[in-house]
Structure formats: C-alpha cells, structure tokens
Design a protein around this nucleic acid. Structure first.
Length: 411
DNA sequence: TCTGGGGTCCTAGGACCC
DNA sequence: TCTGGGGTCCTAGGACCC
C-alpha cells in the first residue's frame, strides 16, 4: 500500500472545466424546437441592443457575442432575435449544477454556464477524467436536453482553454506532458486576464503566441503587463495549481440601463435612478445583504463614463436610503451631463444582513421605510411584481398596472 | 445606427489615525 | 520646531470576463 489517498497523483489531469454551449440560445432552441437550425440570437432588439448569445448556425454567419444587434442583422437578414429570459436561464443553470453535484462533490461554479470540477476523488467510482467528462455531458444532454463541452488538465487555466477548443459538443483532456505543446501555438488572448489592451501591448514587442511569450525576457513582459506579469507567466506555462474554492459571497450588486434615446430631462433621469435604487434595494433584501456604499454610474452620448459613490453612515437595504444618496449624487453631476445615454446604480461593500446590527435611525427622514418596504416585499411575493411601486415613479404612460422595473417600460 | 448588462479585481491619491 | 511611516477607509477610474 505505497500509494495512499494523501499522495495525490499530481500528473493526472483531474481538473475539468464544463462549459455549456451557446447556453442562452441552446435553452431557447430546446424550448422551441422550431428554432432548430436557424440563426438564433438572444439579446436586445432595440437600436442599441447587442448579442448576448448566438446559436452555432448564427456563428457560421460571423455573429458573435457582444456584437451590436444592427451588425448581426446585416450579417443575417433572417436572424431570429429572442429576448433574454435571465431568470429562466438561472433556473436551468441550477439544474445543471445540481446534476454535476450528483457525480462530483468538489466543484466551483464560476458563472451561469460554467463550472470547474476536481474529479480526482471521483475516479474510483466513475473512472478516469475522460470517462467522467463523457458521463456528465451525456447526462446533461439526456436529462436537460442541452449541449455542453468539457476540457481537462492538471491546471484550471488549461482546462478552460481546452474546453473552448472542444466546442461545440465535445471534450478534450490534455495530459500533463502535452501541456506545453498544446499551449505554444495559441494566441496570448487565451490567457485569462489578457484582454485587447494587453494583446496590443504584447504585439508591440513581437509577442503573439503563448510560446513566444515564454521566450521573451520577463523584464520586457513586465513593462507591458506590470504587476500581473508573474501570474501571466504561470498561466502560460500551464503551471497554476490553484485548487477549487467556493466564492465567499457577492461583492456588489447593481443594475444599469442604456436607452435607445438619450435622456435630456433631468427630472426623467432622476425618476429612472430612483426606480433603479428601489430595484437594487429589493435585490439586496432578497439576497439578505446590506450595502455600505452606493455608486451612481453615468455615461454621456460620447461614451465618457463617470462613477460617483457615497457611503452610508449605517449599512442599509432600504430603497429610500439608496434613493436619497443616489439622487444627491445626480444633483451634483447633472450640470455636467446634459444628455444621459446610460445610468446605473450599484450597491457595494455588502455584508450579510443577519450579522449586522439593525440601526433604527429615528432621527432620519427615512425612519420607518424599512418596515414599509418589507411589507411591500411581502405584498409583491403574494400578488406579483406589477402590484406595487413607488408613487413618484409612476407616470401616466406606465400607470395602467404596469410593472415599475426599468425594463418594463421598454419591452 | 458602433459598442449591453452583469460582475471582479487592481491601482492610486487623499484623508485620517496612531 | 520639525518630522516619518504604516494602516485603513473612501473615492474614482480602468482593464477584464461571461
């Protein structure tokens, strides 16, 4: 019995990265089979809408995520645009993650459609990593009707790169000894953290592939990448051995909106950010967090973006408190922002509501709002989201039983 | 008719405390 | 009278990811 469980065989590619294929689009196609084979995208149909997800038939026409919808329409005049149903996708996501949990205990969800799995412990029961990957993909296909891809490696970063190469509907396990050969010819942009800026900077010093990056003196890389250099080199070698962790908790939570037509009336801006503050406060209460700071984000038509933040005396999840601060920030900035293309409200520095002592701010004007808004939450839960809203945010156009969320007014 | 909405992480300066 | 530096919080902005 020389090999004990504690002696983990490092060279087994035991880290899997599972990535759902075209997740939002695949769900819509599954739910409406008449869309099968068509260039389907999920996203906003408005003038400033963009593609959130595209089916593979759409991709063969050159359509990509984050592409302006106008461009996508030009590429595919027969494009089918399906509005996003985020709550539905989140629910399906939970089903996927629950299914993974029946096979692999060690897992870390990293986004709505991706998870890392450490399958070293599951090998005795389910076989080598490639077999586990095949099992997971088959079950997701049979039980949820959705395609997925899996990459495997000794390294998280390489597993993620491998899953991208396995798409669509495939799997690719990279043995430890083949890691360098696999990475060398790939563009540096496959490394997480290397975005358009870094790609341009590396291109200036003649570095385009991962292999080239490893041949350049670290001092030259440091001038381009700064303090990230050591991490990038580690990832480029496929040498990261970060284990799986669980996200501790959310760091921030917010909402923002770009309008098809710029807002020019300061009162209208004020009304919109008031609704957003209420919406964010509702999200805080639903997730049982209090926020210490609230941020107002504004973008003018030329793309210039500013953020202005304000910190509360006591952490809060009350819409009235968020509104006070965010409106005050707006009043300070409105003179310099005659046209508003985007506005957003984000709550930061969250803490769990349960462990934060409740502050009854009896001297504040908003005293009592906590109770009122809690009652409104309950009423909403019973009668639906359309039943209640702040009086001042209702205008004649939306009063007729419409919901008061920002989305509701621009279907 | 150029570019969404949800986020995370990092840097950097100034205030303030010790 | 003149003086250092560490730690932490707040604020603003930017790169990046899905």
């Amino acid at each position: 019995m020389a090999e004990q469980d504690t002696q983990v065989p490092e060279e087994v590619p035991g880290i899997l990265h599972l990535d759902m294929d075209a997740f939002f689009a695949s769900i819509e196609i599954r739910d409406d089979p008449s869309l099968q084979g068509l260039p389907v995208v999920v996203g906003g149909a408005g003038a400033r809408g963009v593609v959130a997800a595209s089916s593979y038939p759409a991709r063969t026409r050159g359509i990509r995520s984050a592409m302006p919808m106008a461009t996508a329409r030009r590429l595919a005049p027969d494009l089918v645009i399906v509005p996003a149903r985020i709550d539905h996708y989140r629910a399906v996501s939970q089903q996927v993650m629950a299914l993974l949990g029946t096979v692999v205990a060690e897992r870390e969800q990293i986004s709505v459609d991706e998870a890392f799995l450490d399958v070293r412990g599951a090998r005795r029961l389910f076989g080598p990593p490639a077999q586990i990957a095949a099992l997971l993909r088959r079950r997701i296909r049979e039980e949820l009707g959705l395609p997925s891809s899996v990459g495997g490696s000794v390294s998280r970063a390489v597993a993620k790169i491998a899953s991208a190469h396995a798409k669509p509907d495939g799997q690719l396990i990279i043995p430890a000894e083949r890691t360098a050969a696999f990475l060398a010819p790939l563009p540096v942009s496959v490394i997480s953290g290397i975005g358009p800026r870094a790609v341009a900077g590396l291109g200036d010093i003649g570095v385009r592939t991962v292999g080239q990056l490893l041949e350049v003196p670290v001092s030259a890389l440091r001038r381009v990448l700064g303090p990230r250099t050591d991490d990038v080199v580690l990832l480029a070698r496929g040498a990261d051995r970060t284990g799986l962790g669980r996200r501790v908790r959310d760091k921030s939570l917010g909402t923002e909106r770009t309008w098809d037509e710029d807002l020019t009336d300061p009162r209208e801006v004020r009304r919109r950010i008031t609704m957003m503050a209420d919406d964010v406060a509702r999200q805080l209460r639903a997730s049982e967090f209090l926020a210490r700071t609230v941020v107002l984000k504004l973008r003018s038509p030329d793309g210039a973006t500013i953020s202005r933040s304000s910190t509360f005396e006591h952490p809060t999840a009350t819409g009235e408190r968020l509104r006070e601060h965010v409106v005050a920030l707006w009043e300070r900035e409105r003179a310099g922002m005659p046209r508003v293309r985007l506005a957003g409200v984000r709550a930061m520095h969250l803490e769990p509501a349960a462990t934060t002592p409740v502050q009854h701010e009896l001297t504040a004007r908003s005293a009592g709002w906590e109770d009122i808004e809690a009652a409104m939450d309950q009423a909403r839960a019973r009668f639906g989201t359309a039943s209640l809203g702040r009086g001042s945010t209702l205008d004649p156009l939306t009063r007729q039983g419409q919901a008061t969320s920002p989305d509701a007014e621009f279907p």
